[in-house]
């Protein structure tokens, strides 16, 4: 009996805090806007009955999303920005994780601590701090101009480049940690064996180390890609008007236009777009478990 409780706990949690809210959002996405409080119809009314309630729901908002290129572009742009930023994060994170995994054993906990350290400061504050670095008269431009590397200040702030920097910075630990955990498991003897068999170090890396770190690469990429796609704070603070991301669109639909039904539809479509990578992620994890 006690065991049943233990198993049920996470499912009840998911039901209450994921499935129920999801259905509320889904229902909202099938409703129409109204100048009322709450700003949508229908609201379930017992006197009119269920049949009447369901008859008022439709997929109008979804066809609206598909017909307006603004939304489609925002989705595509979000996926693109998230994908490019994920690749950059991988390029930055892999050498760091590799260095950590090859560092002397007694240093590793300290290095791990340093990777996690930024989490002790609020995410919002850390993204804000980047404004101070990237803006026209910011630290980066001051530094570069001071040393005569550039004469004109770089225009990074309020561009997509700033968004990339923000995402790479913010999500780097999510890339490093799974990478580190899979790289650390690879025995250095495997590289020695590869070298002994005639493979120079860089080729040994591509033939042995990299394929064996694949579970970490996949996990890290998905952990960055999924939240980056729906990212709102970073494009809002660092991006400019040309940076189109679905998180921002959602926000303005909800707060500026007060169009709850359309923004709910945007959220549902975003969720569906992310379910695919989540399934891929779980499959990869499954495979890693089976491989052990």
């Amino acid at each position: 009996m006690r065991r049943w409780y233990v198993i049920a706990a996470p499912y009840i949690w998911l039901l209450l805090f994921f499935l129920v809210p999801f259905f509320i959002v889904f229902k909202l996405s099938l409703s129409d806007t109204a100048r009322a409080m709450p700003p949508y119809v229908p609201v379930y009314d017992m006197t009119l009955g269920l049949a009447n309630f369901f008859s008022q729901l439709d997929f109008e908002n979804y066809s609206f999303l598909l017909s307006d290129p603004l939304y489609i572009n925002a989705y595509i742009s979000s996926l693109k920005i998230a994908a490019v930023a994920t690749l950059f994060t991988l390029f930055v994170g892999y050498p760091i994780a590799y260095g950590m995994a090859r560092a002397p054993r007694e240093w590793r906990p300290t290095l791990m601590m340093l990777v996690i350290l930024p989490f002790w400061t609020s995410f919002l504050i850390r993204v804000y701090a980047w404004i101070g670095i990237l803006k026209k008269e910011g630290l980066l431009n001051l530094f570069l101009m001071n040393y005569g590397i550039i004469t004109e200040p770089l225009n990074i702030m309020n561009t997509t480049t700033a968004v990339y920097i923000g995402i790479v910075y913010s999500y780097l630990p999510f890339m490093i940690l799974p990478l580190y955990s899979s790289l650390e498991k690879i025995s250095p003897a495997l590289n020695e064996a590869a070298e002994d068999l005639g493979s120079p170090p860089w080729r040994a890396f591509w033939q042995v180390t990299f394929p064996l770190s694949m579970p970490g690469v996949i996990a890290g990429c998905l952990l960055v890609f999924i939240p980056a796609t729906g990212e709102f704070v970073i494009p809002d603070l660092l991006g400019g008007s040309e940076t189109l991301m679905i998180g921002k669109t959602l926000w303005s639909e909800f707060f500026n236009n007060s169009d709850w039904p359309v923004s709910s539809a945007v959220a549902v479509v975003l969720l569906l777009a992310l379910v695919v990578p989540i399934v891929v992620f779980q499959r990869a994890q499954q495979r890693e478990r089976e491989a052990v």
């Binding site: 025995s187 003897a189 020695e192 064996a193 070298e195 002994d196 005639g198 120079p200 042995v208």
Partner: peptide, 21 residues
């Protein structure tokens, strides 16, 4: 000479060091 240029010599490792993939 680095190990990969010592073509006369090959080693069998204590841990076997087989490539698991």
């Amino acid at each position: 000479l680095p190990p990969y240029e010592r073509s006369d010599v090959n080693m069998m490792f204590q841990s076997y060091a087989l490539f698991p993939h």
